[in-house]
Structures are given as structure tokens and as C-alpha cells.
Design a protein around this nucleic acid. Structure first.
Lengths: 187, 187, 187, 187
DNA sequence: CCTTAATCGAGACGGTACGTCGTGTCTTTAT
DNA sequence: ATAAAGACACGACGTACCGTCTCGATTAAGG
């Protein structure tokens, strides 16, 4: 019945599974994604999924990791603080648009630590950007509280969690111009 | 068949239902709360629940509304901007502690607009507080962007959504002292 | 909302109820007839039904009584035993056709005594027919066992209970010619 | 979560299911037998039942088949036509007594063809008996109509379907002595 | 090269909850 | 007093998934 001669294994199979999960996510959304559905779409058994991920949250987490791969890989460098921060935020929005807003929602609710490192990475990226701004003399050299450093990312994430649609450019600008820049230029 | 002579109806029954849901929430948490469980605890049928709320999210939303009813009823007045803002945030944390962090999480994930008016209310409360601060001469009289006004509430909510534990006093202080006050005193 | 000024009562209402039940029977059949459906069709409440009949079986029984009213009212008289018996059986089949075979089925299963008197009536009718046949000299005058008298009706009923379609003329003829007539002409 | 190491499957499970249904039948009767009850008694899920039988009627039909398994296996041989026929009828009554009269009723109402082969089997058994009677010279060798052959079984079934109690010996005797024997001895 | 062990594809299993339907009782309002 | 309307307590329906387990089929790896 199966007998197409070739049976998937290992990495190739895993890729198919994640692809299937990805398509399932796209079609029915996170809330209605089921292990059963993913297995069916990948034309395999549920055990194959459970062998790899203990529940759908972990599975989706893996999908997300795969799709939006390296988040903090390259730090934008526009030569200006404002441009850099906006670029970072736009990257986040792009990621949200790609995954779909409700996937973000869903993950947040079920996975305790969707991105335990996400926050850390963002802090790192913004730290670098701020340092360069200090170097250019755009802002003072005083040590900024951690909360301030991660402020743009935090506010944007807050928006993402509440709204059901991709965050608009206006909001990004507002976060940067109304909140972040005034704060770091304060000293 | 049943006929014990007294049968709950209308408002009285609804109160019992919400109480049952509340207890269920407390015992098993949001994720494992079921319509079936609530109905059983209230010793009635599921239909009685479904007649009122189409799903568990709406039910819990009603419970939350009932429990943490009047959020913006009284605006704290400590005679000082910092004290006022902290008092507002502490009120939010108190509410979170009462409901339990995962209820907040759960609601967020399933209900599109847990509190559509919540944001509006917070903005109103903080607006009053800021006006008073202007009156006292604590801060300048320039018009503040909406985003800045709701900033403390937004940041606190962001914390609530990410963490699984009640937000600590330290975080509140950090939000107020590192971000909010510097921003509104800037001018 | 109701206020058409006139409200049905007593016999008029009861007639409407039975009509509604009758139409319901015709549309969905006995198995799927519900008190709720009948009440809805008659545009009234269930209580009005339950006040009159304790359950759907009794209700349908009343419908049947009303529709196929007087069963043994007129005894056929064709001037010949065979014709008379066939006429009686055809009357039964006609009744079955009118009610629908599954109504018969359903009633039989749920109502212990759909026709406690039905059997009695049939025996009476056949008795008269047989007496006339004796008078005409078609058969002997010996006393026939009750079972033999009711035999045609019993066999026909057996057919009705098993099949899901109206009993064919062939079967009637077979009952009469292969079984009944040989038996009563035996002496 | 369950994991007790032993999980019933296939035929063994099916046997348990039928046993459970049988016990349920005995305890609450056909009318109040529910899929839910049977599943609970068998300590399994409803799906396991529905996977095998689409509704309770089919389930009970399977139970009946299993319990009163081989109906026409041995043809009674008392050396005399009357004794043989009575023995066959007594076998049917025994079966009825075993299952309970209302099970028969219930099945009849819901299952279109409780035993499509039952009639055929009975005809076969009675055919053999009649042949032997012909061989012994008890009755003539003329071909009997099918309806006459199955007459005793049909009449008995009719009794079973109408009454709520096991058919009495008197009735059996009446069927045989008043109807069947006179008919087959006629020639 | 051939055995052996692991994994795959498929699906049954024991279980929980879903959301719906119908029962028969009870209550309310209006005629 | 009863009609009309509908809520209530209850029980069962049939379905969807969960996470586990079993069963052959197939494939990779080791002796």
C-alpha cells in the first residue's frame, strides 16, 4: 500500500514534518493546528512527531525557529541611531508578518519561553547600536538601564501581542520618536 | 424527575455559574478549565453555559470582569506623580495576583480583545494623574503623546504577558524611575 | 409578539396539535419525530403536549386513532368468502400505506398496546364474514379456533412488522389461498 | 498516561465489548441501553464501539448473533412431525426467554433486518422436518407453498412481537394443532 | 552479504472534552 | 385556568484529538 520504494528518514523526514507543520499553521492557524493534522499532511504517523517534539507548542517553536532563523545575525548600520532602531523594529515586524500574528499569540500563551534568548539577543543588538551612537556622539556616554535598552523591542512586542494585525509603520515611528529617542537623548 | 421545588434562574443562576467558573479557574487554572467541569461544579448542564457564553474564553472573560470589576473607579491620589503612578501599577499587579498569571496568559491567547476598554481606562486614569502633576508644577504643561501616557501600563502588561509570576515591586519601580519619569520630566 | 388576538383552546387546539404531529410523522417518520418538533410546528409549548399525552408514543397513538379512525366500521360484503377476506386485508394494507410502514414499526416497539382492541376488532369482523360464509354454505358450520379466525390478520401483521414497504397484493392472495381458505374448508 | 502495559485489541477486545453490551442489556434492557453505558462498562471509549457498529441496534444485533449463535444447527428429530415442530418452536421461545422479550421488540423496531437469514434458516429447518414426515408417510408428498412451510415460525414470531412475555406452551400447541398440522395433512 | 535493530507508516486504543439535541419539569407573562 | 414561550436539570449523542501502544514493512548498520 505504501510501497513507493523509498521511505523518508532522519533529516529529510524532519524537514518534511516541519514543512507540513508550517503549511498547517498557514492554513488553519495556531489555535486549530493539531498533531493529527500535521501527521496526516506529512503522510506519516503521529509517533513520528511525538518522537521529536513532546507537544504541538514545541513543534511550532521548532517551525518558527526554522523559518525566522537567525534573528540577530546582522546588526543594521544606517549611520544614524534612529535609522538603526527603526531597522531593527522593521525586522521584527517582518518576522511577524511572515509568521502571522496569531501564531505569535498562540506561541506566547502555550510556550513559557518561546524566546528566552530573544530578549537577550534584542538587548545585544540594541546595545551595539547604542554604542555606535555614542561613538558618533549622537547620545551621551552614560550607562543606560537595561530596561531602556530593550524598550523599543518590548513596546513593539506589546503591540504584537495585543493586536491581531501586523504592526504599522506609524507605530514604529511613534515608539522611536515619542519614547525611545527622547529618553536616550535626555542626558 | 428532578423536581426539588427550587430551581435557579436568571441572575441568581448566572452568579452561581460565574462562581463555579471562578473556583474552577483557581483549582485547575485556565488551560485546563473546561465547560464540562464548570457545569458539573455548578451542578447544571452545559447548555446553560453555552446559552450565555459561546466558549470558555468568553466565560472567563465574564468571570474576570466580575471579579476585578471596577478597575479605573478610583484614581489614586498620593500628592505626588511618582506615588500615583506606582499606585496604579500596583493595582494592576494586585489584579494579576488575584487572577493568577496564567489566566492572563490564557485569556490573551484566546480572546481577541480581553479588555478593549482596559487600555482606554488606563489612559484615562494616567491622564488625570498627569494633569494633576501639571497643576502641581511637577512636570511641564506640554501635550504628551498618547503612547507616553499609556507607557507605564503598556510596559507592565508586557511583563505580565511574558512572565509566569506576579510582577515584582522592583520592576514597577524600574518602569517608573528609569522610563516614565525621565520621559515626562524631559521638557 | 404573539398577539394575533385569538388564542387556541380545547378541541380546536388539540386538533391543531394532532395535525402538526401528523405532518411531522409524514415528514421525518416515527423514529425522528420529537415532542419538540411537534410543539414547534404547532407553534406552541411542549407543556401543551405533555398535558395531553405523556410521551410521543401516546401522542402518535392518538394521531393514528384519529387518522385511521374506524377500522372495523363496515364489514365488506362481496358475496363470497375469499373476496371478503381479501377486502379486509386490503383495508389493513391501505391503512399501512396511509400511515407509512415505519410508523407501524415504531408504534409497535414503543407502545405496548397500540391496538389492544385491534385484534379484537379484526376477530369480530372476520367472525361475521365467516358466519356469512357458513350461511351461504361455503364452509362447514364447525366451530373454528380463535387462532384460525384471526389467522389472516395475524399473518398480514407479521408481514407488516418485518417489511419496510407496503405489503403486496401477491402476499395477500397467498395468505388467503395458501393458508386461510384451505384451513377453513378442511372440515 | 494510561500505560498499564496490557491493552486489549482486535478479537479479544471485541469479545469484551459484546460481553459488556450483553450485561448492559440484561441490566437495563434494550430501551435504556446506551453506547455510553456499554463503553463505560467495558472500560473503553465510545469510539471503539462506533468503529465497529454504527449504532446501538447494530451492536445489539451482534450481541444477539453471538449469544444465540447457531440457531438452525441441529434439526430436532423426535420421530414424529408434531414433536419436531414443537421442538423447533420451543427452541425459538427459549431463545426469546434468554434474550428477554423487549430485546426482541427493540431490535425489530430499529433494525430493518434483524435476521435476514433467520427466516431462511427456519424455512430450511422446517423443510427438513417436513421431508422426513413425508418419508414416514405422515403427510402427503405434494409440494407445500413456502408460506405454509414457514407458517409456524411466522405465527410464533408474531406472538413474540406483540406480547411482552415469553410465549406460553399453550400457544405453541395451538399453533401446531389448530393451524399447522391441519394444513399439512389436508391433502 | 546477511542478520539485526531501529525507525517508519498506519492506525487502534483508552480517555477527555466538545458542542448539540431531546426529554420532561418548571416558571413567567398574558389572555 | 390555561396558552405561549422558553429556561432548567439531565442524559446521551456522535465527533475530534490527545498521547500511548502495537503491528508489519523497510532500511541502515554491524558482524
Amino acid at each position: 500500500m505504501t510501497g513507493d520504494g523509498s521511505r523518508r528518514r532522519g533529516a529529510a523526514l524532519e524537514a518534511d514534518l516541519l514543512d507540513a507543520a508550517w503549511e498547517e499553521l498557514a492554513e488553519v492557524g495556531y489555535a486549530r493546528l493539531t498533531m493529527e493534522g500535521v501527521a496526516a499532511r506529512a503522510r506519516t504517523g503521529k509517533q513520528v512527531l511525538y518522537r521529536r517534539w513532546p507537544n504541538r507548542a514545541q513543534l511550532v517553536r521548532a517551525v518558527v525557529r526554522r523559518r525566522s532563523g537567525a534573528l540577530g545575525e546582522q546588526v543594521p548600520d544606517t549611520g544614524e541611531l534612529r535609522g538603526d532602531v527603526l531597522a531593527v523594529l522593521r525586522g521584527m515586524v517582518e518576522r511577524q508578518r511572515e509568521l502571522g500574528p496569531d501564531v505569535i499569540h498562540g506561541l506566547l500563551a502555550e510556550v513559557p519561553d518561546v524566546d528566552p534568548d530573544f530578549a537577550r539577543i534584542m538587548r545585544g543588538v540594541l546595545g551595539v547600536i547604542l554604542e555606535r551612537a555614542v561613538g558618533r556622539g549622537e547620545i551621551g556616554s552614560g550607562e543606560l538601564p537595561g530596561r531602556v535598552v530593550s524598550l523599543p523591542a518590548d513596546l513593539l512586542r506589546h503591540e504584537m501581542l495585543l493586536g491581531r494585525e501586523p504592526v504599522s509603520e506609524q507605530v514604529l515611528v511613534s515608539i522611536v520618536d515619542d519614547v525611545f529617542l527622547p529618553l536616550v537623548r535626555r542626558s
